[in-house]
Design a protein around this nucleic acid. Structure first.
Length: 259
DNA sequence: ATGGTCGCTGGGCGA
């Protein structure tokens, strides 16, 4: 089973790019971030006619996540538990009913800039809630994954120019420590588990010719529970998408599971 | 080089 994560940076702007990528890459499941659309305006027919079930958790203008799946979805939940006052649409979960059911959590972790400040406090608080959710799911000892735009550069090798990011919310020590605490629960970061080579990125800024200079960062990740990691066959980045017409500033990352 | 470029939206914010 092929599961992908893709921060599309606006469904309206990706109305041709996204279906073309789906037709070529043929993921069974696609976790989308930054749909930047309310649920009612999401063009679900485009995906349904390709055989996908569509579940969205959107809001006006910003953020928004979605799950596309060729397999049935059960127990869809929207929003990250732990703060009833959080109105930002950044999290969705569902169980993919393949031969082995897998709980998938699609997330758009807060950017957190400028740091320090209230936006950074929100990011760290959100990561604490994500930690709690991971602990709850781990206790069930079933296959699950948390994937999406983490807005975290895990290590210096995950940035072309790490010196540019030292004070940034994506790479500050508190950000990296919170991400490391997640991993230390026993989750496997799929790309690092399957690729030894550094210099692989998932985001290139639109500004200052970042793509042409390969000035990228790796911030889109798959974290797998032990039972899910046992099924991991491969993890790759569809880097070439960034060089095509009307690209998102992120590219898809995908895993292949023996499930 | 304190800029640069996108997307959503309809002015300015977010990234």
């Amino acid at each position: 089973m092929k599961i992908a994560t893709f921060n599309i940076n606006g469904i309206k702007a990706r109305i041709e790019t996204l279906p073309r990528w789906l037709d070529e890459a043929q993921p069974d499941v696609a976790l989308l971030q930054e749909i930047k659309s309310v649920d009612e305006a999401f063009p679900r027919e485009i995906f349904e006619e390709r055989g996908y079930t569509v579940e969205t958790h959107g809001m006006k203008s910003f953020n928004g996540v979605a799950i596309l799946s060729k397999l049935p979805l059960e127990d869809v939940t929207r929003g990250l538990p732990g703060d009833d006052n959080d109105e930002q649409a950044r999290y969705i979960e569902a169980t993919v009913m393949g031969e082995r059911p897998i709980r998938v959590c699609g997330l758009y972790l807060p950017n957190g800039n400028p740091a320090p400040g209230p936006k950074y406090d929100y990011k760290l608080a959100w990561m604490k809630r994500l930690q709690a959710r991971a602990e709850t799911l781990l206790a069930q000892e079933e296959p699950f994954l948390m994937a999406g735009d983490y807005n975290i550069i895990p290590q210096d090798e995950d940035a072309a120019k790490p010196e540019d990011w030292q004070e940034d919310a994506l790479a500050r020590p508190e950000s990296r420590a919170a991400y490391r605490r997640l991993l230390n629960l026993g989750l496997t970061e799929a790309f690092r588990a399957r690729n030894k080579m550094a210099g692989m990125y998932s985001f290139w800024d639109y500004q200052a010719g970042a793509w042409n200079r390969n000035n990228g960062i790796r911030i889109d990740h798959f974290l797998l529970s032990p039972q899910c990691a046992d099924l991991l066959l491969d993890c790759q980045i569809d880097k070439e998408e960034r060089g095509r017409s009307k690209p998102s500033d992120h590219v898809p990352v995908w895993i292949d599971l023996a499930a």
